[in-house]
């Protein structure tokens, strides 16, 4: 009884309720994408993307337009930059990612120090689940809905381009287009997740749930389901930890998910399932196209 009261108490404040809903939205979108990020080997590009949107946010903050579109613009520029630098006969993709990642993030930090004080935007770096505005929440809901819809609509195309790009091309489907769509969804989701975990720790929501779930199952929809579940539970922990324990929400969420991963890893070792981590073999993705 006391527990229920403790659980419900913060929800009577509308700004707290908004924070929780925002966190859950981010968790669901990240949970779904996480499965693909892990199995397609996109952790590095996910990390880069989440950092690369910083200059967009700072510029938007300075000129007073929506942080969301600022972030999205910078994310799109980063993706296009990576695409332009890598590809046949040019740089290897991870090299291109590294260059863009560092350049954009540095620019973001520099702009931050010139234009604003760190204090103003520290919630962008570390997330603040308790500071979500009403209109932000509506925007986030729309974005997450769009991301989920896009994943559901292109599910079979995601499967075939991930598993066998040559077959995908043979049936007239471009793995590059699918990859760009996935990167766009990643950018959109990152923008939403920044609210709760911040730029620096978005990766915890984009990589770890999928990795933990892959320790438990080898079926993609089970992986996606478990991944959503873990991200959601971690968000609850982060939210209540933030309210009652005065913990920063981002690190609380990230550490909870890391805990889930360790449990799943231990469980996989004990039950001696075949190692499900996709890291062991190299992805052929970049070699074929």
């Amino acid at each position: 009884m006391v527990l229920i009261e403790l659980a419900l108490e913060p929800l009577s404040y509308s700004f707290l309720l908004r924070g929780l809903v925002a966190g859950l939205l981010a968790a669901v979108a990240c949970g779904v994408l996480s499965g693909f990020v892990v199995w397609r080997g996109m952790a590095f590009v996910g990390d880069a993307l989440s950092h690369a949107i910083l200059p967009g946010i700072v510029v938007a903050f300075f000129f007073g337009f929506s942080l969301f579109f600022g972030a999205l613009g910078a994310g799109a520029l980063a993706v296009l930059g990576i695409g332009a630098l890598s590809g046949r006969g040019k740089l290897k993709e991870d090299t291109a990612i590294g260059i863009i990642f560092a350049g954009f993030f540095a620019l973001g930090i520099l702009l931050m120090s010139r234009i604003t004080s760190y204090q103003d935007l520290s919630h962008v770096l570390f997330g603040n689940i308790l500071g979500v505005a009403q209109q932000d929440l509506i925007g986030m809901a729309v974005v997450v809905g769009a991301v989920l819809l896009a994943i559901a609509a292109s599910y079979k195309e995601l499967l075939v381009t991930s598993f066998d790009p040559a077959h995908a091309v043979a049936i007239g489907l471009s793995p590059e287009v699918i990859r760009y769509i996935l990167l766009l969804l990643l950018a959109l989701t990152t923008v939403v997740a920044i609210q709760t975990v911040g730029v620096i720790l978005v990766l915890a929501l984009l990589v770890t749930p999928g990795a933990a779930a892959s320790m438990i199952s080898r079926k993609l929809h089970t992986i996606l389901g478990l991944s959503i579940l873990m991200a959601t539970v971690a968000t609850f922990v982060g939210f209540y930890g933030s309210y009652y324990g005065d913990l920063p929400s981002g690190p609380a969420i990230a550490l909870t998910i890391t805990g889930f991963f360790l449990l799943a890893y231990g469980w996989a070792r004990i039950t001696r399932r075949k190692g499900s981590a996709p890291a062991a073999t190299e992805r052929p993705e970049s070699s074929i196209l």
């Binding site: 598993f163 066998d164 790009p165 079926k219 993609l220 052929p284």
Partner: peptide, 10 residues
């Protein structure tokens, strides 16, 4: 070698 055999599909 161009197929990602580890990808979780049945």
């Amino acid at each position: 070698s161009t197929v990602d055999w580890q990808f979780p599909v049945t």
